[in-house]
Write a protein that binds this DNA or RNA. Structure first.
Length: 359
DNA sequence: AAGAGTCTCAACCGCAAAAAC
DNA sequence: TGTTTTTGCGGTTGAGACTCT
């Protein structure tokens, strides 16, 4: 037999909540707190099932919910975390205080997904679509540009992924230092990465961190080398710790090896699509340093997204923008604003959600 | 002005994991 | 330890709002 339904649906109301029902639910929870959702409706005098009450509360009535338009900061967080986590809305929501997973999911589906699609980026994989390549009109240069964008996008995504992995691992490492070891509640997997995973991925880790979190930064790595060296520096500590001697090196490797190998693979990919001032040598994995990766990603990522975001600003501001633009428009302000906007996405990659309850 | 098409988002559904028994 | 119940989650729906023609 299947499990019994969450509630007896006969005679129970469905559909939109009335203000009176909201008031009853609010009043009951304020007075009695959240108990069993199953028994709550009867006690609160509601002709609803417990599940409906729970959803109404968690998605709408909870006092710590922020409603209304998403800020640019929130948008960029969603985009990045979705690239990293996929459709794990609850996990994404933990990084967006006062936003519900349902709201984020809706916003993604109705706004961000379409925007990415419009840009020719697959909203699932966060990679440019093949048809975007094929549909270009002037052959080689656009194809090269799209290849370049693909590598940049994937690199940015993987960098974000690597960041969360390292934060996750550092937290567990830190916990192990101060308490008994507890496995991290969150084990990161990439639902979107299509790059291969190498057991040999060798992180050479050093520190540039200025974040309040313990930080690990990549200074260089060579795919396929046989030895793994890892150094970690925790906040407030003077010395780098060599992970190679750490008992949880395997743990680090497990999480980071995946991301790092992907990350370096991605960087290798980038060398086939260098444009403009990018120096192929600067992108070779064994010559990578954080700064030039950051610059590459910043320029490329910004340019990648710039056109669409300008359009978005124009359309978002509607009539106002029409008036201001006077037909031809002063694109420089929009350009700068949006360059800043998208650059800030990159900043998120390098910052850490220090108060995240996620890990 | 009105009908068609599109968009938005609150709410529902069903599954799975966790908790309770 | 197995079964039942509760909770959490992600996918989907559909009514109302909005835009276009």
């Amino acid at each position: 037999m299947g499990r019994s339904p969450c509630c007896d649906k006969v005679g129970l109301k469905k559909g939109p909540w009335t203000p009176e029902e909201d008031q009853k639910l609010l009043a009951y929870i304020e007075e009695h707190g959240r108990g069993s959702w199953r028994s709550l409706p009867a006690k609160a005098g509601l002709q609803r099932c417990g599940k409906s009450c729970r959803l109404r509360w968690t998605n709408y009535l909870r006092p710590d919910i922020k409603r209304g338009k998403f800020s640019l900061q929130e948008e960029q967080t969603i985009i990045q975390l979705h690239a990293l986590l996929g459709n794990r809305w609850s996990a994404i929501a933990t990084h967006l205080p006062k936003r519900t997973d349902n709201e984020i999911k809706n916003y993604w589906n109705t706004h961000l997904k379409k925007r990415l699609a419009k840009m020719g980026i697959d909203p699932i994989t966060h990679k440019p679509k093949n048809d975007a390549l094929l549909s270009t009109t002037d052959g080689q240069s656009k194809k090269a540009a799209n290849l370049s964008h693909m590598a940049q996008w994937e690199s940015a995504r993987l960098e974000a992924e690597a960041r969360l992995v390292r934060e996750s691992k550092i937290r567990s490492h830190s916990l192990q230092h101060h308490h008994h070891f507890n496995p991290p509640a969150f084990t990161l997997e990439s639902p979107t990465s299509t790059l291969s995973v190498s057991e040999n991925a060798p992180p050479i880790i050093t520190g540039l961190g200025v974040s309040p979190m313990p930080m690990i930064e990549f200074v260089g790595t060579t795919s396929g080398s046989s030895e793994t060296a890892g150094i970690v520096k925790e906040e407030g500590e003077q010395e780098w710790k060599e992970l190679g001697s750490s008992s949880n090196l395997a743990d680090y490797k497990e999480g980071m090896g995946n991301s790092l190998s992907s990350f370096t693979s991605s960087l290798q990919d980038m060398t086939i699509s260098i444009e403009g001032g990018w120096t192929p040598e600067s992108l070779r994995p064994n010559n990578i340093n954080v700064n030039n990766v950051g610059n590459i990603m910043e320029e490329g990522f910004t340019n990648l997204l710039l056109n669409d975001s300008v359009n978005r600003c124009l359309s978002d501001s509607g009539k106002e923008s029409d008036e201001n633009s006077g037909g031809s428009g002063d694109g420089s302000d929009y350009y700068q604003d949006n360059k800043n906007y998208w650059n800030s996405i990159l900043n998120l990659v390098n910052s850490s959600p220090s108060d995240s309850p996620m890990f």
